[in-house]
Design a protein around this nucleic acid. Sequence first.
DNA 1: CTGAAAGCGCTTACAG
DNA 2: CTGAAAGCGCTTACAG
Lengths: 327, 327
Amino acid sequence: MEDVARIAGVSRGTVSRVLNGGHDVSEAAEAAVRDAMLATGYVVNHYARSLVTRRTNAVAFILSEPHERLFEDPNFATLARAAAQELATRGATLMLMVAGDRDERNRISSYVRSGHVDGVLLVSTHRGDPLVAELAGATLPVVVCGKPLDHASEFRFVAADDREGGRQMTRFLLDLGRRKVGIVSGPLDTSGGADRLQGYLDVLAPDADDSLITHATHYGIAAGEAAMTRLLAQAPDVDAVFAASDLLAAGALAALRAAGRRVPRDVALGGFDNSVIAQSTDPPLTTVHQPVDQVGRELVRVLFGLIDGREPASVTLPVDLVRRASA
Amino acid sequence: MEDVARIAGVSRGTVSRVLNGGHDVSEAAEAAVRDAMLATGYVVNHYARSLVTRRTNAVAFILSEPHERLFEDPNFATLARAAAQELATRGATLMLMVAGDRDERNRISSYVRSGHVDGVLLVSTHRGDPLVAELAGATLPVVVCGKPLDHASEFRFVAADDREGGRQMTRFLLDLGRRKVGIVSGPLDTSGGADRLQGYLDVLAPDADDSLITHATHYGIAAGEAAMTRLLAQAPDVDAVFAASDLLAAGALAALRAAGRRVPRDVALGGFDNSVIAQSTDPPLTTVHQPVDQVGRELVRVLFGLIDGREPASVTLPVDLVRRASA
DNA sequence: CTGAAAGCGCTTACAG
DNA sequence: CTGAAAGCGCTTACAG
């Protein structure tokens, strides 16, 4: 910077001003500085800048989930990509952090609360997540992906409309003429799990039948298979099933096959997510599409709203049903 | 830090020394400083530190691929997680960057070369990737995930043993008693694509038959389906197929079904990756498992070797065949 | 073992 | 519009 100033024949203060928008700088001075920057190949030192501005231009993307539940959100890669790109257009960068156990959680919690990032994107939290509680107490800008289950009033969030998705799928199965529509719901300690079940109940209640409802322990193929097996035992006459994720649906498919039920003929099956999985099963899944890319971008937009002191609203994004062969 | 020093009754220099390992500090002084740090809730400012040490404790994880090829590496999420965790144990953090088009590539290239990160992890590159060329010229420590196709001698890499995996699967299909073993290979401008095909040829040459070889345009279900359809036209008597990824295998499965071939009875089918997809197809896929977690950790270990000026060797990790129902 | 001092590269009132 | 100066919070020879 010293060099640039010398070559341009101005002071370091002036160089700094053109760097920060060029306000209060004459055109001649600005041009001279820009030429000098090109000539020297100058690049700012972010650390020096952060030291004085107290802005880091970094955002933490915290994946808060137990290690064994790797595939809970099959769209995590897409989400991280979308957020990273949106961040890049704003000159910020995404720092990926995995809070898989208590040690990691503590390390991350103190890291982000010590001013190393401008804000936090909190992904895949469960009810009772200690990280949520700690962040609720902090002054740091935080946006949650999915509707928060705890401290809901303290957080802005961005979510797909899980409940409406649950309604759409349930209605769709009913409109197919099916009479016994069951559900393999996800774990109820996640907002997606609870809301998709709620959507199902919205449509069916007060006729909902407990024997048609079953919960998977987590979003995995094996868990889906086990849950579907239970459902079949409870309600042998089930003729349609809404599985609350594509992975659960893949498991349900295996259980149905094992029981000799044809899909969709004997049992119509619907999934949720519209992930790659939905296209790889046989038959391919009718499912509810979540706009994951858009969720990633909105997450960043809302976070910057918070950082800049505006008061951004939480956002719920629409979902839509994609019809394939399973129902 | 000023406060800590005052409370502990020492100078800032001494506080800094205990922060950096406590060398050349008396026990009494160290204890006093630690107490003072606890009392004040002191946390270092990384930016001030980076400003003087020239170390950023940040590593760029660059995903270099065109936007439309989202699922090329179905294990990207796992890879990023593993790397982030390994980085965390070393006090560093992972910055995720997506180089999807020229603009993004330029921005990222100049960012990482301007000293904002200590090193780079380069993921999912293709032959001719301009980013690889630029990074080859730079002095920055770089480790490539997968064997580099260009500037190979200039980079350290960490890869799964794709070629050996190709051999194992081909041999396995042959040992099943199949006579016409075909391949749906991946795109040849990726190291995985080229090496898996090479493994197939290692086993079959000089008897390899061109009509049994087909290439998918990218790692997608639709591409796998199209390639399998071509293969069936070229070699109607094919009785086994090695699809170079699980996604390609899922597509091949659809094509085989459409052609009325039963799997594994008429055609035995093997995949590659052992991703979730392999468990969701019907039948589930016999496939080659890649130790993605371990690749992520090794990537970081090798990078730190480079950063610390040691001369770490590239590493190739073993793969192994997982048998399921498709072959 | 310890302190005083210089310096890392920037930004931002302040005075003009 | 511009420059001189202070200051952001640390580390690290240097001298003792």
